[in-house]
Each structure stands twice: as structure tokens, then as C-alpha cells.
Amino acid sequence: MSVIANTAYSNINVKPFYSTGFGHESDKIRRCNQEANRAYENAEIFRPKQLILQELDRLYKECSEEGWDGEDASPMTDDIYNEARKLLDCFPLTSFIQLPEIIVDYDGEITFEWSTDTRHVLLVNMKGKNEITYVGLFGTNKVNGREYFDGTTLPPAIIDNLKKTYLIS
């Protein structure tokens, strides 16, 4: 199975260096900027996000055609893929909240799963319609809901439920 190489790096926002300058000093500044950008891109803190974006790309490639499961599964559409990618991009890089596992359902929709044990589980479903649904179990408490997702801001309800999954378990 193939992996779409380097696409994950496109989500890391590195500022390009533009200059009309020339000469020895200008070249030196340009080189320094390139080295700084390379170090930024390869920083350890981005590694998990890079890996999960690569995994999403791999699944998109694998599941974007009808019958990808060997039976009659619906394809993952561009809208669903893009929405999932935007949601991952919104994710804060923290040491205590892990990035989710990605599940592609037979209806082509994507579910993100976070769990710390059998009774602390959060599922977030993406349908590619700027609307995400969630289902959670936190000990004996159950939650479910529906949130508008504008593609740029992680809905507060998801953040609250992630805290319940990771901080209270």
C-alpha cells in the first residue's frame, strides 16, 4: 500500500522567506532562514500530527472508490477528507491529549476515536457537511451531540469532552 509522501508537511505553517536582496549578506540570511524552517518542520512536537495526516492521506487513497472494503462500502468523498484534515489541523499540540485513531466507516464517513480505557471513549464523526457529531462514554456518564464546524475552530464541546477523556479518567 502506498503512502502519499510529504503531504503532511503542507499543514505545518512555515513562513517562506521572500527577499529582493542580493549579495553575500542576503544569501547568508536566506540560508539561515531555510535552515530555521527545516528545523521547524522537523521539530519533534509536530511528529504525531505529521504521522496522522499521512495516515489520513493513506486511508483517503485506499477508501476513495466504491467497494473499497471488498464489498459495497461507499467511498470517502473529497468533502469528508477535507473536513477531517481541517479538524486535525485545528488540534492543539499537547502532551496530554493524544491525536485520534482514524476509522473509515462503510458509509465512507470518518470517525475519530480517542480512548484511555474501555469506559473513557470519545468518537467524533465527520460527514463532510460542516457538521460533526460526537458520542462519548466517561465512566458511567454518556454524552452525544452535534456541532457546527467552520473548518477553522475546534468546537468547544469537543475540547470539553476530550478533557473528560484524558484528564478525568
Binding site: D107, T118, R119, L123, V135, L137, N144
Partner: peptide
């Protein structure tokens, strides 16, 4: 709904 079934499936898994 898928969400209702997910909620049950989480409980069954537990």
C-alpha cells in the same frame, strides 16, 4: 442512527 449504535457498541466493548 450510527451515533446511537456507536453509543451501544462502546458499552458492549466495555
Amino acid at each position: 442512527t450510527k451515533e446511537a449504535n456507536q453509543a451501544i457498541a462502546i458499552e458492549l466493548a466495555a
